[in-house]
Design a protein around this nucleic acid. Structure first.
Lengths: 341, 341
DNA sequence: TTGAAAGCGGTACCAA
DNA sequence: TTGGTACCGCTTTCAA
């Protein structure tokens, strides 16, 4: 159906090679021929078959991106930022969602490899590094984002999660919280790093926290996360309630806030709440939410640059680790008295 | 780098054809040969080059999806739903974002066509139908979603936007609003349809509305949409303030709510607010937002089925139009007295 | 400046 | 049951 080089060549009594050269702006083509060819291309609405081209050049000009959840605004933002950088260099971004399922992630990666993407970008949900070792064996360039693996010295771009936890927690200390809790996430590097940062900050402030004040959840990422709600509810039932809580992410924080308000307590006066992610609507919540920004645009931008470097840069170079500094955005959910110490 | 049929054939002293047959579960291969081949494939971590296959079969097994905004939860949800149906049939979904820019949309479509997608799914931001006429000429199957064109009898899946407007507006009437305003969207079918529904519902209730009560915005889709805020602010400055407002979408409604609250008025007592989209966090807003659900999952599901039908179904069939019924989700932002009439 | 031939990694068709 | 040959649409190399 679609026009091919061959069609144009036939119509113009030229060879396929000549047309191909015009297509790629090859210098040694007479202006006249070039004109004729371009004219005919336009008439036929010609589009080179990129699959065929990829087959011979060995470059698909596709970057594959696998994220755990397309609907999560963080990943959407990152994808948008990556795409806008890559597009300028002629690359397409093929997006896949793993739905936070390691097996599905594996399938999606296989699919992308079968399409011979030039580079793979993954926010992985795997618990082992096997997949990535195999990528290395096959010399397929890849960049991890958001979640990293200690066992792996791979290219990585993400926010410094320990800093996230420490930033949020010290802020709670600063606004006068004395019994600070943490509702954490599943067993991935982001959640673990943030929990570590939480503990570090407490120690730095010579504070400690009872075991019941730290909960690591299994799943849950929806707005008003049910497990954040449950976890908070349980903490509020303790004889010593916490007066501040740092939540793994914003949805969790929204769930926690709901629990606090339902218990007829006030945010931030009785319990101050900090989330992470800085979702666009944080300002419009029942109590505007203080949150640690994850720098999604910066992550996307750096990731895309790194990926391009892997593709264009000749030298293999060793794995590059980009750790971005998180930023705290203070809103009503932690605005109580200043420095109570 | 990656293994090819040829490599396996050489290693096993077989022909490429035989390996290819094993790959595709062709019946006439001896069990023994099959075993040997499969074993070697596993060892080499063989993955068929889909681009090469596409070249000869003429089918890429790729569906292309172009949306105006990846970060918008509605499109994210739709993409997820489409993808999950297509994946089961062996299709990959390649996602592009047009950033609400008609030119960029055109580029993305071209890019997808160059990759020879089997079918195109577009939530178009174009103002003319030229692009789609060309698709028809080239016999490339496509499905429009969300936004439609009157000039075009194309496959379409979306919610009934007139019904959206009517549903929201009658609800406002029912809860006792007497001066109902509408903050609409840009000049695309969704916004126009919802505004039409708004007018219809008013007429059906023998109500009318001053011109200042209807605003159609140009752009804006972020959480707490600035133009929703501005529009509402202006209306609140009128001598006769509206007592209810139907907003084009949820972000707009959030902006409008902000304006109402800042004016020291109450939602819903002074001004009731209805949005559209039913975002996941609607329940957690300063005032939980009544919203018309757009059925993103159903849209995705029906779209994917329709697309598959276009691909697998032999008969060309005539354009199919799927109009889904919207559903109202009532929350605090409109919970005032019942039927004041 | 132009083009013939070979080949990228597969599949289809038909013969052995 | 197995394989030879041609070919998908394009680029590369080298010769004319």
């Amino acid at each position: 159906m679609a026009a091919r080089l061959k069609d144009i060549a036939r119509d113009l009594n030229l060879s396929v090679v000549t047309i191909s050269k015009v297509l790629r702006d090859h210098p040694d083509i007479s202006t006249e021929t070039r004109e004729r060819v371009l004219k005919r291309m336009k008439e036929l609405n010609y589009r080179p078959n990129l699959a065929a081209r990829a087959l011979v050049t060995g470059r698909s000009y596709i970057a594959g991106l696998v994220v755990p959840d397309l609907v999560h605004p963080f990943f959407g933002q990152v994808a948008k930022a990556i795409s806008s950088v890559l597009r300028k260099k002629g690359y397409s971004l093929v997006l896949s969602s793993s739905e936070d399922d390691p097996e599905l992630e594996q399938q999606e990666i296989d699919q992308l490899l079968a399409r011979r993407v030039d580079v793979l970008i993954v926010a992985s949900t795997q618990s082992t590094v096997e997949t990535f070792r195999r990528l290395e064996e096959q010399k397929i360039p890849y960049v991890l984002i958001d979640r990293k693996f200690d066992e792996l010295t791979a290219n990585f771009v993400g926010v410094d999660d320990e800093a996230v936890g420490a930033l949020a927690t010290s802020h709670l200390v600063e606004v006068g919280c004395r019994r600070i809790a943490h509702i954490g996430g599943p067993k991935v590097s982001t959640a673990i790093g943030r929990a570590d940062g939480f503990r570090l900050a407490l120690r730095a402030n010579r504070m400690s926290t009872p075991a019941e004040y730290v909960v690591m959840r299994e799943h849950g990422d929806d707005a008003g996360d049910a497990s954040g709600y449950e976890a908070m509810k349980r903490m509020l039932a303790l004889k010593q309630k916490p007066d501040g809580v740092f939540c793994y992410n914003d949805p969790t924080a929204m769930g926690a806030m709901k629990a606090v308000l339902e218990a007829s307590l006030r945010v931030p006066e009785d319990v101050a709440v900090v989330g992470c992610g800085n979702v666009a609507y944080a300002d419009f919540l029942r109590v505007p939410l203080t949150s640690v920004d994850q720098q999604s645009d910066a992550i996307g931008d750096r990731t895309a640059r790194l990926a391009l470097g892997l593709l264009e840069g000749g030298a293999p170079a060793k794995a590059k680790m980009v750790l971005l500094e998180p930023k705290l955005v203070v809103r009503a959910s932690t605005m109580r008295h200043k420095r109570a110490g």
